[in-house]
Design a protein around this nucleic acid. Structure first.
Length: 586
RNA sequence: GCGCUUGUAGCUCAGCUGGAUAGAGCAUCGGCCUUCUAAGCCGAGGGUCGCAGGUUCGAGUCCUGCCAAGCGUGCCA
């Protein structure tokens, strides 16, 4: 409908230009919007106000000229000029009814769009370090990222979901060392666990199964392990130096092969847990991309060579730097440390080069907001590599600040004090989790009160929407139980009986769904879909309370049932997209 | 210090990307179950859109400057 009105207006503008009233080079983006107040009709355009200045006419006068040139259309019952120069369109009620039939015919496909057809987009999200289970902060990224990916798919894009696995680097060495030390404890060795090691219970679990499988194969005496290791922080030393020395000792005592075995045991276990967790949360990926693979196939070296060839690398203080400040970054960044190891950033340059090489039309990265300072350097790297950095869109997700009642919950993966996504799902359920997470705009800071979220109270808005669906199902059951026969055709023929204000409101809201879906997709804003669902559910509940559906009049009854089936279909479509269940009874 | 994000009702948040009289939920108060599920509905109160300027027919929305909160500002990832 919007498109139809836009083309009508476009034709009128062209006619004005042909008449010489408007210069041919004047162009205004034709903007049609839904109106809030029904007195102003159904759609409005501000075109006349935008063109008033270039046309050197006052807006209302111009609006009259535009309206006079507007071709008639059966769907438009009336066009008015109002206010400072709005052109208001009133839609023919008969054409409003058609939406019920359209939804019925399209079924699960109702609302899908083709604006992304032929375009490939990659969405990378979560990508949490495999050093521990996902926590509630990752949960928001998971819910948001998968919703964005699913929305893009609904808009016709070919979507590839990817998880970047940071299976290289110092943090992973700390994990491997932590696993080994807990393993030594399981063997009976006694020592003080490093303050900077991973202290979570899951590390002990990994160590325990390692002990079961390998026996004492990796055992070394505690005295040997800790000999001449610099003191830990609680003993007045430096926790970083302490753990780094322990990593070196582990590599030295175990040898490459055994160290890698311990390392792999930790990685495999945690990655399997993460995959399992996400699966249960309704999140799936086409690709799990390993950081180490970029090193193994020399992609990192190649990327650095390309930067060097482009003249963006230089040596200083024993390290190799990327001159990112020449391309908008605050300062230059190290890509090869003075100890010869490449940095995480170097991997990321190679990773983004790899993404570009895969030929996506659009690359979407979803990061925690704490990584925002990282964007300029990645874009700088893409530019330095001669790539079109506008293909990269970075979406930031603010971390949820966790409260338990009034008390703020401090989280740190290493200390092991965190609420896991799995715990949250067990307590609140998947549906409420997903709904809650994408209810807010992603860049909005979010207070997550566990007491509230974990309470099974009706304060959780997901129940409100699901209940609307369950009520429709209940009505349909009652109808069947009365032994009555559904007559769809009769209902469609008498949709014009649906003239109650609640029915008109629902018809309008139903017709908005494709627009909402499209907008939510192109702006990466799944919360818009949530808000739409609440509006639709609200209108249904209001309708339910105001009118009886199962009336004796077969024509009215079938028309109403057809309408609420359309409501049900849209609820199902939207909730299914968000991976939220649609229970038939509650 | 600098950078990014945020600031809208008592609380949590929307606000169709510059449009017409700023909206929901929760909380508070008052109504509605002999009628398809009361996890619901109806009504009331509640606002200097952080503050001050600016841009224009029009600003919660854009620009500038302040104020406040969170994050970032590693040869960690």
């Amino acid at each position: 409908m919007k498109q139809k009105l836009e083309s009508l207006l476009q034709d009128a503008v062209t006619a004005l230009q042909n008449q010489g009233i408007l210069d041919a080079d004047v162009s205004a983006r034709i903007h049609i919007e839904r109106v809030r107040d029904p007195l102003h009709g159904d759609f409005a355009s501000n075109l006349a106000m935008l063109l008033a200045k270039p046309a050197k006419m006052n807006p209302r006068q111009l609006a009259e000229k535009i309206v006079a040139l507007l071709a008639g259309d059966s769907a438009v019952s009336k066009v008015e000029i109002a206010g400072p120069g709005f052109i208001n369109f009133f839609i023919n009620p008969d054409s409003q009814f058609q939406i019920v039939k359209q939804i019925h015919d399209a079924g699960a496909r109702f609302g899908l769009s083709r604006i992304g057809a032929g375009k490939r987009v990659q969405v990378e999200f979560v990508s949490a370090n495999p050093t521990g289970p996902l926590h509630v902060g990752h949960g928001r990224g998971a819910a948001y990222g998968s919703a964005v990916a699913d929305l893009l798919e609904a808009a016709g894009f070919e979507v590839e979901r990817e998880y970047y696995v940071n299976d290289a680097g110092r943090q992973m060495d700390i994990l491997a060392t932590s696993v080994w030390l807990r393993y030594l404890e399981a063997c009976g060795e006694v020592f003080t666990f490093p303050s900077n090691g991973y202290r979570g219970e899951y590390v002990r679990d990994i160590s325990a199964s390692l002990y079961q499988k390998a026996g004492e194969l990796y055992r070394h005496a505690a005295e040997q392990v800790f000999a001449e290791i610099p003191a830990d922080e609680p003993q007045g030393g430096d926790k970083e130096k302490h753990i780094d020395a322990l990593i070196e000792r582990a590599k030295q005592l175990l040898g490459t092969e055994q160290y890698n075995a311990v390392f792999q045991a930790g990685l495999d276990d945690i990655l399997a847990d993460i995959k399992d967790d996400l699966q249960d949360f309704g999140v799936s990926y086409q690709q799990w991309f390993s950081e180490r693979s970029l090193m193994d196939d020399h992609s990192v070296q190649q990327a650095l060579q390309r930067l060097d060839a482009a003249g963006f690398l230089y040596q200083q203080d024993g390290a190799t730097w990327f001159a990112s400040s020449r391309l908008g970054d605050e300062k230059d960044r190290v890509v090869v440390r003075d100890n010869g190891q490449t940095t995480y950033f170097a991997s990321d340059i190679a990773y983004h080069m790899n993404k570009l090489d895969r030929g996506f039309d659009q690359i979407v990265n979803i990061w925690g907001a704490d990584h925002h300072g990282y964007i300029p350097r990645v874009k700088a790297a893409m530019q330095a590599l001669g790539a079109d950095e506008s293909k990269l869109k970075v979406l930031l997700v603010q971390f949820a600040v966790l409260y338990r009642g009034d008390e703020k919950v401090q989280m740190s993966t290493r200390s092991g004090e965190f609420v896991t996504l799995r715990q949250l799902r067990d307590e609140v359920g998947k549906d409420a989790c997903r709904f809650f997470y994408v209810m807010r705009k992603s860049e909005q800071h979010m207070d997550f009160d566990l007491q509230l979220a974990t309470s099974k109270s009706n304060e959780n808005p997901v129940y409100y929407v699901q209940y609307a669906h369950a009520r429709v199902c209940s009505v349909l059951r009652q109808f069947d139980e009365k032994g009555r026969q559904r007559n769809w055709q009769l209902g469609f023929e008498h949709l014009n009986l649906l003239v109650a204000e609640q029915e008109t409101a629902i018809l309008t809201t139903l017709s908005k769904y494709p627009e909402i879906l499209e907008r939510a997709a192109v702006y990466y804003e799944p919360h818009q879909l949530i808000h739409y669902l609440r509006e639709l559910a609200n209108q249904f509940h209001t309708y339910y309370n105001a009118h009886q559906f199962l009336v004796d009049d077969e024509r009215l009854c079938n028309a109403r049932l057809n309408l609420i089936c359309a409501v049900k279909q849209v609820l199902v479509n939207a909730l299914t997209l968000l991976k939220i269940n649609t229970p038939e009874t509650m």
